[in-house]
Amino acid sequence: MSEVTVRKQRPKHLAINEIRLPLPGIVSILHRVSGAGLFLMLPFLLYLLDRSLGSPQSFETFSAVVGHPLAKLLLLGLLWAYMHHFCAGIRFLLLDMHKGLELQAARNSSRIVLIVSLALTALIGVKLW
């Protein structure tokens, strides 16, 4: 007996700009990126905590650092990372409990995560600054 082997034409390179990632995949990647960002920014946050609690002079240093527009932008990014990581974490816990595994439910929950995390970031960001 002869076996016929059919070979598929596969691309020789991976064109990342042509890959269309679904929304739940984007939320998953952003969850990982936000977790890594929060972890890597931990020394900066601990420095700010130290400056804010040490003495009145160190609080002045804290106020000067946090008052800079670049630091405010960085802190706003950290706030978004925390909000997104929190909301997406709740979504993933529900997925682990087999809630919302259907395609449309997964798309809706990932859309909700993005909207809620951005809304909370805007709300808290405006309240803080």
Rank of each mutant, 00 (worst) to 15 (best):
L95I: 07
A106Q: 15
S109T: 13
M97N: 12
G100T: 13
F44I: 09
S55R: 09
I124F: 14
V113W: 04
S55M: 10
K12H: 10
Q9S: 08
I26F: 03
L94K: 13
T5D: 08
R20C: 05
F44D: 06
R20Y: 07
I26M: 07
Q104Y: 09
K99R: 15
H68Q: 15
L93S: 11
V6S: 08
V4Y: 08
S109H: 09
H85R: 05
F92W: 05
Y47P: 00
W80P: 01
V65Q: 13
L79K: 04
L103Q: 10
N17K: 11
H98W: 13
I29H: 04
S55V: 04
L48D: 04
K72H: 06
L123G: 04
A122T: 10
V126Y: 14
I90K: 11
L46R: 02
M41S: 15
L123K: 03
H98T: 07
A64V: 12
E18F: 14
K72V: 07
W129F: 13
S58R: 11
Q104A: 15
L95Y: 09
S110F: 00
I29F: 15
F39H: 02
S52M: 14
I26Q: 02
L118C: 08
L49G: 09
S109A: 14
L48W: 02
A81V: 02
L21F: 10
I90P: 04
H13I: 11
W80R: 09
E102L: 11
S34E: 00
L38W: 03
G89E: 01
V65N: 09
H68S: 14
A122Y: 05
H85E: 07
I90W: 06
L46F: 05
S52T: 03
L42E: 11
S34K: 00
V116N: 00
R111S: 12
L76W: 08
S55Q: 08
R111H: 07
L78V: 06
V116E: 00
L75D: 03
S109V: 05
R7H: 14
Q57L: 09
L45T: 08
P56W: 06
L49W: 06
R10H: 12
F44T: 04
L21N: 07
D96F: 04
L23V: 14
S34R: 00
A119Q: 02
A71F: 12
L101P: 10
Y47H: 07
A81R: 01
G25P: 01
V116I: 13
R7E: 15
I19G: 09
S110P: 05
V6H: 06
V27K: 02
R107L: 13
L95R: 11
L101K: 14
A106Y: 02
M1W: 01
S63H: 12
A106K: 15
S55Y: 07
V33K: 01
F59P: 00
I124T: 05
K12G: 14
L49F: 13
A88P: 01
G77S: 10
G37H: 01
H85C: 04
L93A: 14
P22E: 12
D50Y: 14
R20L: 13
G54W: 11
T121C: 08
L120W: 11
